[in-house]
Design a protein around this nucleic acid. Structure first.
Lengths: 181, 181
DNA sequence: GAGAGCATGACAGTTACTGACATCAAACGT
DNA sequence: ACGTTTGATGTCAGTAACTGTCATGCTCTC
């Protein structure tokens, strides 16, 4: 049976949405996907990780986009270029992103994992900025700020009925942030 | 035997430092503290929580300090007032804070929990700013930025051999952040 | 000094996760 | 065509994080 991993991801999303994360056992997911519990844990380090499959790709995209950005951009501008590139990935599957974020919002232990992934995005962003020559603590602070923008822009992107593009949300959020300082 | 909770916290910090978080079982901690495993889990929701006892106090301090700050401060300035107040709590037990942060840095699952507590600090800060009349998304962004400053300032506070005060670290980090924008 | 209330112990049960070994099928070299 | 090797999966036993329930003992009060 092909694409066991994809089947497990879909099964997990369905079950988490139907009855919640805590009420779903690893065995439940494995059964619905037609595999054994052991196979589930071979593909995912833990039960939560099944929702975070794409996160490595996103972090990688951010990294590449920052290194490819024009050299004369400020650290913050370069970091935001990476954020917009990450947003493009979400844009391709808006519906999936919305359902996933609802599931995560409903469970603190999933929120923890999401925060860890965002922290990885901060680290990667800061590293890319340093490669471009940004000094500390500017690299670190710009990375944190960019991921904050990502976080807040994402929330408005999925909540608006107007359905603006992710890049627009980033632009608006960035403007608001600049105004604060 | 008095102060069971304190004994468990101390036992856990010792054991985590000696052999690491994963290599320490809840039974180990309970035994060293002279209680049973069940008692441990009555005091702490999970094994990680034993390291995050003071976090509610800190969040509460931030909230109070923001509400007590002069009304004419900008949202970001008010939020930073809260951060400095939280720093004062750390200042009282610098040694403990350093040991604790080393333990957390050594384990990803503890980092997750730390990030969740910082996220709670963001939420509380944003709420306090809203009570002061800050609109969205300013309240949210200022809260995120203030906690970023806390995070980065904390790192420099514990790494510097010069041992500056926490408030100085916050001031320097804030200045660097403003320069970025 | 009986009883209410609270912290703890004792114990059984579920579930997340891991290690070790067996199986099976596709891919590969000869 | 055939033995081999490799990768994915199944099976099974085990550890440890938690949870529910009931029993026990201690303190405080009337």
């Amino acid at each position: 049976m092909p694409d066991a991993q994809g089947r497990m991801i879909r099964a997990a999303m369905e079950l988490f949405a139907e009855r919640g994360f805590e009420q779903t056992t690893a065995v439940d997911i494995a059964e619905r996907a037609g595999v054994t519990e052991r196979t589930f844990f071979r593909h995912f380090a833990d039960k939560r990780e099944v929702l975070f499959d794409g996160s490595a790709t996103m972090v990688h995209t951010v990294h590449e986009a920052i290194l490819a950005a024009p050299g004369d951009l400020s650290p913050l501008e370069a970091a935001l270029t990476g954020i917009v590139a990450a947003g493009d990935l979400l844009e391709e599957r808006r519906d999936h992103a919305v359902r996933r974020s609802r599931i995560i919002a409903a469970n603190p232990s999933l929120q923890e994992r999401e925060l860890l992934k965002l922290a990885a995005m901060v680290d990667t962003t800061a590293e890319a900025l340093r490669k471009r020559g940004a000094p500390e603590p500017a690299a670190d602070l710009a990375a944190h700020s960019a991921v904050t923008v990502f976080h807040v822009a994402f929330a408005s992107w999925i909540s608006e009925q107007a359905q603006p593009s992710f890049a627009e949300c980033v632009a608006q959020t960035t403007a608001a942030l600049r105004k604060l300082m």
